[in-house]
Amino acid sequence: MSDAADPHGPYETLRHQEETTIAGMWLFLASESLLFGGLFLVSLIYAHTRANGWAAGVRHTDLVIGGVNTVILITSSAIYTLAVEAARQDHKRRAVQAAMTAAALGLVFLLLKAFEWSKEFKEHLFPGTHFAITGADAGGAQLFYSFYFLATFLHAVHMIVGTGLIAWICLRAGKVNPGKSWNTSVEIVGLYWSFVDLVWMILFPVLYLVGRT
């Protein structure tokens, strides 16, 4: 693998390309943080203007599943970081193994999430005419659950994309000589994966903890 970049591409060296790609990913993540930022504005406002109903909603979420899922995501992100380190030291095999473990944990997260959702559907916690929580705070609780389902859905979509990206990484590793640009890809996907984890670190307290007692 030589250090010269593609002569038709915009870069002089591979190092330059790598640095630029990483910076670009960070910029994209800054953009993503504003995507979730709009959601958090909604929760910030309703959690205060509709505090009682909102808290009633928080009390109905399943803290056990949420907590276990948080542990899973933290672990998954940590293991993927191991993959990034392994790729940096050109241990391709170790990198792929770690990445696949991280993706598997991501799938476990999604499965648990799906189970949680189906439980909530059965308990009539999806907003609508047969909503389970009644009384004066029913409106606020419905607002909470609208937020809950949309936020967890959006997060789950990011998880699915992330899992797909990791799968792509692992497939590319099978090619004869993935080379330096592969290491960069591993790193980029790692940034994304950790970002998804990071979003959950905020979603978890907002959906399960704040206002519970």
Binding site: E19, I22, A23, W26, L27, L29, A30, S31, S33, L34, G37, G38, F40, L41, L44
Partner: peptide, 20 residues
């Protein structure tokens, strides 16, 4: 990460603050 990454992260955080 390249120092640009820090700039981008700070910009994102700043505008997140403005939004909220």
């Amino acid at each position: 990460a390249p120092s640009l990454a820090i700039i981008f992260a700070v910009a994102g955080l700043f505008w997140l603050g403005v939004l909220l």
